[in-house]
Design a protein around this nucleic acid. Structure first.
Length: 531
DNA sequence: CGAGTTTGACCGGCGC
DNA sequence: GCGCCGGTCAAACTCG
């Protein structure tokens, strides 16, 4: 990476030099039309196709000599001689004009190239800075806990959490950047080495598409659904002795949406394993497990909102360890990226060097054009208070397609600023969306979100303006969250459209209703065939 | 008959 | 230590 950065810097410097030359030639261009021709030595004239700075400097040299010729031509002489000179000057003037035009074009091309290079450089710079920061927090953890002695099976993870990124080698990062820049679907095939052994959550292996598996240390014949206690115990291997901090539980992503069906259609197959009436809400809470894969650790809780029974609150926990149906990728990406943000951003110091509360994964395939990538909090050093199940809530219930993003108390990503976590659940941002969103236009969406986020400055209390601005910047710097929002909003808009379409047709309405039922057998069958 | 759902029992964390 | 509560288990039940 350093080599790559140096190369990039070198290219940038070279480009800067070009820019200087271009500026010179640009200034020269101003004089071009006014400049009378002289004894144009074509062999000394700059070739527009040349791109090195020395040639650009040659341009200025030539032009200067031409300007001196202009002074010379102003000397008094005979009329014939003047006419002769005038004709010659006209020809040369046209020639120079043409050259100036070409130089201008070259100038524009180089400017564009420079802009692109600067953009790439900044992106790469941020990436390197992020990695350096992570290394900075990783090293003391390894030295203090002796994690290097722990042997763990080689794991490949799709995790969006910070842990996975630390262990990617530079080549993989470079390739990932290339894939990002090319707008290709991210594979997120991260390879976890032994240093990742302190992962709380099963870092998981990755299948060729988008899945990962439980660590091999798990017994093959273990129960398909190990108790949470087992998960957490295994997840804290070798850490509690070093850091007697409260265990950080899995990050959760809660999605609020208006839905008449028992559950939201997120594309996955779920099996209900329990139901409980929680305190404060007369509506029972249903517990589901993902049944797409036998050992998928993903669970979800479904509960109707006490205030508005039409609102369905679906809380996702864990990450899929299997390929997802296409219909499930959007929501999975949404929840994974959001959970990853929580994990990487709100985790305590201990998680900052090796133990994200939830190893999240993503299909990274938002309908073949998604860009869910590693989420790196700009400021991983900020501590959070004791967190149990940090939760991010994506509110899709607001009218006019205005999803809200909430963070549970003390779970706001650290880079959103200290001191705000005590405000409790609150709508920190308001994202206005267009009537129709298309995941195939991911980049357009991202910029769209950003522009609106940055405009969304409606303070409700002191400091909110700063907070909103910070959030906007944070989201702007995190394509994963942008894509997550895009996926969520797309799902939301899609459902809205489906409902609208259903209003006009009973048949369509029925289809929508069927689609909306995830836990139901009909839907299960269809998804099953799909997967 | 297999898969999913229901539901009471059970467990562990947390607050008092 | 006790009770509350969230979460999970597992036997019984339902359904196709």
């Amino acid at each position: 990476m350093e080599v790559m950065l140096k190369e990039n810097v070198a290219v940038k410097e070279e480009t800067d030099v070009k820019c200087v030359g271009e500026e010179e030639s640009g200034e020269i261009g101003k004089f071009g039309n006014e400049m009378p021709a002289c004894d144009g030595d074509s062999s000394r004239k700059p070739s527009p196709s040349r791109r090195d700075s020395s040639n650009n400097k040659q341009v200025s040299t030539v032009i200067r000599s031409e300007r001196s010729c202009m002074d010379t031509s102003s000397r008094p002489s005979s009329s014939e001689h003047k006419n002769s000179i005038t004709n010659s000057q006209d020809k040369q003037l046209e020639s120079i004009k043409d050259e100036m035009g070409e130089v201008r074009e070259e100038n524009e091309r180089l400017k564009a190239f420079l802009a692109q290079m600067v953009k790439d450089y900044q992106s790469l710079k941020m990436h390197v800075f992020d990695i350096v920061q992570k290394e900075h927090f990783k090293k003391p953890a390894e030295t203090s806990s002796g994690l290097g002695d722990v042997e763990e099976p080689e794991l490949v993870s799709l995790s969006l959490g910070a842990s996975a990124s630390r262990n990617r080698n530079e080549e993989e990062k470079r390739k990932e950047n290339e894939r990002i820049n090319e707008g290709l679907t991210l594979g997120l095939h991260y390879k976890i080495d032994g240093s990742s052994s302190s992962q709380s959550e099963p870092p998981a292996n990755l299948s060729p598409d988008n899945s990962f598996e439980e660590p091999e240390k798990e017994d093959a014949g273990r129960e398909p659904w190990p108790p949470t206690k087992t998960i957490f115990e295994s997840s804290r291997n070798g850490e509690d002795e070093v850091l007697p901090q409260p265990p950080v539980k899995k990050a959760r992503v809660s999605v609020r949406a208006r839905c008449d069906a028992p559950t939201m259609n997120d594309g996955c197959q779920w099996r209900k394993y329990g139901q409980k009436t929680a305190k404060g809400n007369p509506c029972p809470r249903a517990y589901y497990r993902c049944t797409v894969a036998p050992a998928c650790p993903v669970k979800k809780q479904v509960q109707r909102c006490a205030e508005d029974m039409s609102i369905l609150i679906t809380t996702y926990e864990g990450t899929h360890n299997h390929p997802l149906p296409m219909s499930a990728t959007a929501m999975a990406s949404t929840t994974s990226a959001a959970a990853s943000m929580l994990v990487s951003g709100s985790s305590t110091s201990r998680s900052s060097f090796g133990t994200p509360a939830a190893s999240t994964t993503t299909s990274a395939n938002l309908h073949s054009s998604g860009l869910v990538k590693q989420f790196h909090p700009p400021n991983p050093s900020i501590h959070c208070s004791t967190n149990y199940h940090p939760t991010i809530t994506i509110d899709l219930t607001a009218p006019s397609s205005t999803p809200h993003v909430h963070f549970s108390p003390n779970t706001m990503p650290s880079f959103w600023g200290n001191g705000y976590s005590s405000y409790g659940t609150q709508s920190y941002n308001k994202i206005h969306t267009a009537g129709s969103l298309n995941l195939g236009r991911q980049l357009a969406q991202d910029s769209f979100f950003l522009s609106h986020l940055q405009k969304a400055t409606t303070p409700t209390f002191g400091g909110q303006h700063f907070l909103t601005d910070t959030i906007a910047k944070a989201i702007a710097s995190e394509p994963s969250f942008q894509s997550a929002l895009a996926a969520a909003i797309t799902s939301y808009v899609g459902s809205q459209n489906a409902q609208v379409a259903g209003e006009g047709s009973d048949q369509l309405s029925l289809k929508w209703s069927e689609q909306a039922v995830t836990g139901g057998s009909p839907n299960y069958s269809s998804h099953r065939q799909g997967s």
